[in-house]
Design a protein around this nucleic acid. Sequence first.
DNA 1: TAGGCCATCTGGTCCT
DNA 2: AGGACCAGATGGCCTA
Length: 295
Amino acid sequence: MEEGLFDQDVAGELAFWGQFEAHSQLQNQLDGLNFDFPPLSAQLSPWSSDACQSAFPEAQFPLLDLDLQSLQVESSAGEDSSFPGDALGSKGRQRRLVPSHPYKAQRYAANIRERKRMLSINSAFDELRCHVPTFPYEKRLSKIDTLRLAIAYIALLREILLSGSDPKTYLEQSVKSGYQNQGDAIWNTSGEFNQTFNGAKTVQMVPGSDSGCGGRPRVTEAAGQLLGKVPELEALSIPMSSCCSTSRGVAHYQRGVYSQRLIYIVSNRALNLQIVHGYQTIPFLIDPKHEVGFV
DNA sequence: TAGGCCATCTGGTCCT
DNA sequence: AGGACCAGATGGCCTA
């Protein structure tokens, strides 16, 4: 496989904005649980953060000091505040308090372990998010979308391997002829707004708020003009009604069409417009400086 | 305000 | 026995 086609190049440019911050927050949470447990940082993930750091070599996640403030809150807590519905911090779910009753202490320890376990799972999700290609301006992937997108990505890579052709060639053909293997590529997501896209059933997950973004998506004028300038996009027979605009600065994607989207993302960042179907996008998603082609 | 997403608590079950 | 794992319940936060 051509070096850098998927990992370095794509991940490097498509890293979305939330990853570093999320990682830091996670580290903070873990540190906050450190008060009577061995350091968690080293046991969070069997594969550590190496993969993410390879994708983002400039990113370092230093271990933070213990969250002493939260530790003090916990250790100075009253007896009866460790059970349901009490002792939530100002931010809600953050702080549970240390009980003194033996059973409560046991239950409390179990809660701490469970929190640690869930945090380790979340750290694994963060690792996984580093490896699935997304657009840089895209919202942070949810857990379920991370899993589904990762599955689609693996499937895509597998197909490239099985095809025996050069990855570049494979993607080129996929873009030009349309992605045919949709049987395994389409997942219905949790939404209930089903639509059809290139014959594949898709689900609207984030209904648009602007006119036309719900049942009848529309194309913005600027995006439509750009779309018309890209021959490869026309060749895809993408309906002009497959995107819409938003007044907000957040892009939403139709995540039901994972493999199609992956092909577009991997092959060229400028090809995202077609994947947006009944969703919100913003005109600058189609960057005129990006020539349609392969890196 | 409703819905999606998530963290946390909890009790049950399985495993070592 | 104790820890890991799991799923249900609950409530907070955020966005459309």
